[in-house]
Design a protein around this nucleic acid. Structure first.
Lengths: 329, 329
DNA sequence: TAATTAACCGTAAACGTTTACGTGTTAAGT
DNA sequence: ACTTAACACGTAAACGTTTACGGTTAATTA
């Protein structure tokens, strides 16, 4: 009951494998009448060519690996959607893997993607360490980092200007009079570092030191909600919370609700990503738009270019963030 | 610069292909010293076995195709996340395709998935027509429908009790005194039909006829926002809107905001899916929980069982919806 | 008429694995 | 000293494609 093969089709028409293959691939060396016969037989038998065999022969699978933290985060859903859109017209498909922000899981996913011989790879690396990238370079597979780059290593990447993100958040919150700001950050990746740097530098320029107790880090075990609770229980009394991404803001928002704290009356909050939900929360959320969908598009386009010209230079795309002022600050 | 093959590894160790293969697969017919030599060489050369070749030989790819409408809808993001979780421990991976609710796109994606020789398929069919399912049956690939079944055809599926969803919505809205309810529905799939039936039957039981002008259908070209505008411009004056899913509710919500209509004061709204955002919108949204994540888990489990016992009976899982009363009604 | 060419088609090798089968060596049993 | 068994390893076929190469026929040219 295995699927019909080219051999089956050929046999049924009484032609050779080669002829059947040529007929199906619209090559000229086959007579019109034979071609029609083969096409008809293939159609009737529900013949679907095997990408495995084709890939083994041609060395390309028409599959692009995508490795993100989790598709449940709408930021990545948007990125993946952008990737999908850009790849569709070129016949490429997506093999999706998630790291859940865990190094081991990322490594394992990478193994899978390499085994599947993906033609290219788009990934948001978990850490800002070189191992993962070195592995890809060693395996000679075209790849692009998306959302996060890695300092000191030359790769293609599509990111936003993360330092500026931190800077914009700092300036905005200062403008609104906030001096005690809790920063709930993501773990270990370079974007998180840059946003923190941009933020602290800006606050410092206005004479405000951000001590380590004002920076909490979300991990797979410790949600943004936990971070907030921890801060409040430590008696920190922030007047505003700045989160690495809108997802964390949503988490914080429900925590504040539970505690009966009003936003922005008792405490202000803002995030990054400009997820569509931020328009319709109560209150609508101030956030920073970093062009999620566009990031997906651009990274896919880079991969497509790399596939066309294998020797091409690395491309570095830095998208500009824009502040979206709403009512939560 | 192609990736190292088993042949390369074997040559470097001065052993045959067969021995190298056996060493890497931990078979007993190879001496400890040879095995160590092979493993070391493979490690050094960054050898990664080709799933293509392995798949061609074994007939299984360790890949499950997932065909949904779009990953941007958090409902499907949750479903996919559930699938991923259930598959992970068994070494299966996800090839993701989107139909965007278009029949042609669905058909094309299916071709790709069959070409890739996925071991199994989880899909949310666009229409409640048999073509797609017949194709899969003809190609003899195990599959499960998720979220939507197809009437009159025996397949495995994981759905919620859609008739009951419609019924619950109807009863809840009646209870809140709404008699003029606009139903913004999804297009052409059986779940949409069932929810509509459950809804209209319930309203009818209370003496309220739902004329066709009270049912609007969202298509790729016509968003929920359009549907609402159309209804209001037709002078329909609904006191409540029931949407096929929360995504549509969010869309409606922003449309109402633009028009300056208050929820639930001027008009009530409710949806289905219990997306996490519905807790924190203003107002928090009444919705119906249909266990999104669980749907993913269950459908993946069915596929896993089918892969173990190819001859097994179809499984039909109907999850129970629960009404989540919040402030939008 | 003989030689050339075009049109069509088949044979076989290759892609990277796995395993059935065969072969040679050594150790144990008679 | 001869048989047997166990062990370690190699050879080759198979999975489903594509294409280089060669061959046969018929049509064209000299």
């Amino acid at each position: 009951m295995a699927p019909a093969t080219l051999k089956d089709v050929a046999k049924r028409c009484g032609v050779s494998l080669a002829t059947a293959s040529r007929a199906l691939n619209n090559r000229s060396e086959v007579s019109p009448v034979t071609r029609a016969k083969v096409l008809k037989a293939a159609e009737e038998m529900g013949y679907v060519p095997s990408s495995l065999a084709k890939g083994l022969w041609s060395g390309e699978t028409k599959v692009i690996g995508v490795l993100i933290t989790t598709i449940v985060n709408p930021f990545y859903a948007n990125v993946v959607s952008g990737i999908e859109k850009a790849l569709k017209d070129y016949g490429y498909n997506i093999l999706l893997c998630s790291s859940y922000e865990e190094v081991d899981q990322e490594w394992a996913s990478l193994t899978v993607l390499l085994e599947q011989r993906v033609d290219g790879l788009i990934l948001a690396p978990v850490q800002s360490k070189p191992e993962v990238v070195e592995r890809l370079q060693k395996n000679n597979v075209p790849f692009v980092l998306v959302g996060r780059s890695i300092p000191g290593i030359d790769t293609s990447y599509v990111v936003c200007d993360d330092y500026k993100v931190g800077l914009m958040a700092g300036e905005h919150l200062l403008e609104r009079g906030h001096k005690r700001v809790l920063f709930i950050n993501s773990s270990r990746n370079y974007s998180a570092e840059l946003r923190l740097k941009g933020f602290t530098a800006t606050m410092q320029r206005h004479g405000i030191e951000i001590g380590p107790e004002w920076v909490k880090i979300v991990t797979p075990e410790k949600t943004a909600k936990h971070c907030l609770s921890e801060a409040l229980d430590q008696g920190l009394n922030p007047s505003a919370v700045f989160c690495f991404c809108d997802c964390m803001v949503l988490d914080v928002l429900s925590a504040l609700k539970e505690r009966g704290l009003k936003v922005p009356g008792d405490i202000a909050v803002m995030g990054v990503d400009n997820l569509s939900v931020t328009e319709i929360t109560e209150p609508p959320l101030t956030t920073i738009d970093i062009q999620n969908f566009e990031m997906g598009i651009r990274s896919a386009e880079i991969i497509l270019r790399k596939l066309q010209k294998p020797g091409a230079k690395h491309e570095h795309i830095v998208l500009q963030p824009t502040l979206v002022k709403r009512d939560s600050t």
